[in-house]
């Protein structure tokens, strides 16, 4: 993130863009470690049915709230379900909530920002006022209010989180588009008679890609955190449980079974941290001119 002075010299003319990005990303050690971490978690999530030693709802009457042991390496919960299994399944939920919510958020943010920035004028005015309205609501109130009102499903939770977190990106994309609109090559393309949509897609969007991708990465972490906060207030996803829900379920027995609370919290923390580091690495790698 801070190497901008060093990195500008770092561009090699004979390299494809992607190769360059990868080469530069690799220099950010924490980002690489984070990427490996996330890939591991993702693999575990995908292989959940194979990896988990038990069913995620399978109880064990003889092991109620028992600590980590050979049989249950991360202990069991209040009604004797295997914590390791639940966390493995929880990875599925938490990761997919993060990814889908980020996708929703980035799609909406980019669409609104791009439309406003490209057309400018009254359209810009309307869209930006709308963005400001949404942005003004305290996120937590808005999330809580809506989640309380819609039917609770994995998809709705994803949607709500995504739909409340797109405003920052929209403003950024709009800014990019506004400045790109006046830039030489868009002018040139226009002069050559290119159609509106082609100009947008080819030039502006590609040129805004770097900040969008960085934002998307960070957004995944933010969404995972948001879902866990909702779960904490009892509004999260219950079956199969998300990490936040598992964490919350152990809250009242912390004195007797702290592992129910500690492990999912560590996972959320680690995963969000990893996404943030990846985002940081991407920021450095994607655009040598991108200023911090």
């Amino acid at each position: 993130m801070a190497q901008q002075t060093a990195t500008i010299k770092d561009i090699k003319a004979d390299e494809t863009y992607l190769k360059m990005v990868w080469r530069r990303f690799k220099k950010h050690k924490l980002a690489v470690i984070s990427l490996l971490f996330i890939l591991t978690i993702a693999l575990i999530a995908i292989l959940a049915p194979i990896i988990s030693p038990y069913g995620y709802d399978q109880t064990n009457r003889d092991n109620i709230m028992s600590g980590p042991s050979r049989e249950h390496i991360l202990g069991t919960d209040r009604i004797g379900r295997d914590m390791f299994t639940r966390l493995v399944w929880g990875a599925r939920i938490s990761l997919s909530v993060g990814l889908v919510a980020a996708l929703v958020s980035v799609t909406v943010g980019t669409l609104i920002g791009a439309t406003a920035g490209y057309f400018g004028g009254i359209i810009d005015d309307i869209l930006m006022r709308f963005t400001e309205m949404v942005m003004s609501f305290p996120v937590i109130f808005l999330l809580l209010t809506i989640v309380t009102l819609v039917e609770r499903s994995v998809f709705n939770v994803m949607l709500v989180i995504g739909l409340t977190s797109w405003t920052g990106l929209a403003r950024m994309v709009r800014g990019q588009f506004l400045s790109l609109r006046e830039s030489d090559y868009v002018e040139a393309a226009r002069a050559l008679g290119a159609k509106n949509s082609r100009i947008v897609i080819k030039h502006m969007l590609l040129n805004s890609m770097a900040p969008i991708i960085v934002n998307a990465t960070l957004q995944v972490g933010t969404a995972i955190l948001a879902e866990s906060s909702l779960s904490f207030l009892g509004l999260g996803i219950t079956s199969p449980p998300s990490w936040g829900t598992i964490l919350n379920s152990g809250r009242f027995y912390m004195r007797y079974a702290p592992w129910i609370t500690i492990f999912p919290g560590l996972l959320i923390f680690g995963t969000v941290l990893a996404f943030n580091y990846i985002g940081d690495g991407l920021r450095d790698a994607l655009d040598p001119y991108l200023k911090r």
């Binding site: 709802d57 209040r78 009604i79 379920s249 009242f252």
Partner: peptide
């Protein structure tokens, strides 16, 4: 939602 005991009972019943 939000009732741990009931949720646990339901999990066992199911």
């Amino acid at each position: 939602t939000g009732e741990e005991d009931k949720a646990n009972v339901i999990a066992l019943v199911i």
